[in-house]
Amino acid sequence: MMNVMTEVKKQRNFAYPSARGYGAAALLLTLLPFLLQNQLYYLDTLILALLWASAAGAWNLAGGYGGLLSLGHAAFFGIGAYTSSLLFVKLNVSPWLGMVAGAVLAGLMGWFIGMITLRMKGPFFGLATIAISEVLMITAVNWTELTQGSQGVNIPYKPGFVNMAFDSKIPYYFIALAICLVPYLLARWLKESKFGYELMAVRDNEAAAQALGIHTVRVKVVIIAVSSSITAMAGAFYAQYVTVIEPYHEFSFSVSIQMVLMAMIGGLGTASGPIFGSLVVTGLDTFLRDVFQGAQGGIQAMMYGSLLVLVVLFVPEGLIPWFTRRFRSGKGEK
């Protein structure tokens, strides 16, 4: 019994809240949309924050836990957005099924990319992922019969659960929350599973992992596929929520970097890092939008860029591990 108690105490920090902490968090997360019901602007911000937290969390599974620095995750985000939208617009398939289809397609794509890039080291993998997302962008722009090219796809507004379209923002909130929980829970599971330990070992030293009997190639391919699938789910939801998608945005480098940035700010290889990072970035974004009405586009992006540099230079481990270290003695979460 004593052991259990000390265990619980030990785990009491930002990254691993106690059981009571979970209860409070769950209650807050459930009540929050109703509290913000009349402040649609903030509810909208919150939904977008959750959405980006899902994408950043998905990136973090491969990038943070697996050390695979993908700079082209927009590829999977775009696949998710386009698959569900096109299935809905052209064949009237429910976006719920479209989301699954997008996740499967992106997973297969991720698996394939993993297979062809697995021998690459260092910057080569990152460059290859950029090239892949560019290839998809050019395809989406030029394959006009399918994608309507650079015009993008408009999703007709037909409210109803099957169509994943609602009058109120609250259902969107809960969908975003649910998607956001997928990478979060998976990340928690990684810390408690054989696969997770293998993944972190591959990240930290591939040769040493092989010497211990770890099939490093399989581990990497699996995590890229999983990460891609979840990113596609976020993309599919994004399309439904925003109702218009464009190749120059969905497949863009800045979308890829946004995921990396959020995961890095919160903490690479931490479960709650990407969520926290997304809240910070989206919050700052909203704040800047209020302050600089006109030229916000450039200012916001400059903030992203500066933030990225500052985090890399001053808090490379991210804010969650940094807080954890500051507020309790002993070692931080890794």
């Binding site: 030293n205 040493a208 092989q210 010497a211 009997g213 890794k334």
Partner: peptide
């Protein structure tokens, strides 16, 4: 054979330049 398969068969090694998993304790 690949190193991981040989390791699974019961033959493993250490490295001259130690290769710990740096983010794990």
């Amino acid at each position: 054979w690949k190193a991981y398969k040989i390791s699974r068969l019961g033959m493993t090694r250490t490295f001259q330049i130690t290769k710990p998993f740096g983010h794990l304790d």
